[in-house]
Nucleic acid binder design. Structure first.
Length: 219
DNA sequence: GCCGTTACGGTTGAC
DNA sequence: TTGTCAACCGTAACG
């Protein structure tokens, strides 16, 4: 997970890291300039970001109200679907001492899975460990804290980002709310950005971007 | 010249 | 621990 020391340079002279999203500060600046009535082609030149990218970010913003990139990486569960997890949880609740291989047999016997999508014992163990956890503790918690929401373990998506440039280094510091669940970017943004979607409101973090623009001259 | 779209090469992270 | 795979990224080019 090493970030390159320097990004690449595009045709406009702007620095970017291939495969990685632009810093939030630049994404925000794109939306801000667009809201001020500046044409996308001018934004592209000013920020030295390809017009395709500007177009994409603005289109996404108009559609979702979010400037954040989507969730990169990961893969959809192939065998550990929500249905399977639900059944495993049920088996475990009914019989806390049940073994993974017994769960596996029951998934097959109950027709939850067939032999082609039956999770391995190790997969079931991982589900028990990661997605279900200690059910006895959980039950105690739930019985004593009825209606209390479970803790949100997932870090904010943007927490993962860091950039090699001075712009990006600050851009990644754009704060996300504590305990923000691992939602797709636009979902998360509804918690970050006011529902009005106005740049003025968005610039609740303006000081950050202004600091950046001092070290980032626009032509 | 502007803008929407898309192929491409790249990164990421759950599995 | 390692490899796979499908998601996303921004750029460049095309129409």
């Amino acid at each position: 997970m090493m970030e390159p020391a320097f990004g690449e340079v595009n045709q406009l002279g702007g620095v970017f890291v291939n495969g990685r999203p632009l810093p939030n500060a630049i994404r925000l600046r794109i939306v801000e300039l667009a809201q001020l009535g500046i044409r996308p082609c001018d934004i592209s030149r000013q920020l030295r970001v390809s017009h395709g990218c500007v177009s994409k970010i603005l289109a996404r913003y108009n559609e979702t109200g979010s400037i954040l990139p989507g969730a990169i990486g990961g893969s959809k569960p192939r065998v550990t679907t929500p249905t399977v997890v639900k059944h495993i949880r049920t088996y475990k609740q009914r019989d806390p001492g049940i073994f993974a291989w017994e769960i596996r047999d029951r998934l097959l016997a109950d027709g939850v899975c067939d032999k082609f999508n039956l999770p391995s014992v190790s997969s079931i163990s991982r589900i028990l460990r990661n997605k279900i956890g200690n059910l006895s503790q959980q039950n105690q918690y739930e019985s004593s804290k009825q209606g209390h929401p479970p803790p949100q373990p997932t870090l904010p998506y943007n927490h993962l980002y860091s950039y090699p440039t001075s712009i990006g280094a600050a851009g990644t510091k754009v704060p996300a709310p504590q305990g923000m669940p691992g939602l797709p970017g636009h979902m998360a943004m509804h918690r970050i950005w006011p529902s009005s979607h106005s740049v003025t409101d968005i610039l609740g973090i303006r000081s950050i971007t202004e600091q950046q623009s001092k070290s980032y001259s626009f032509d």
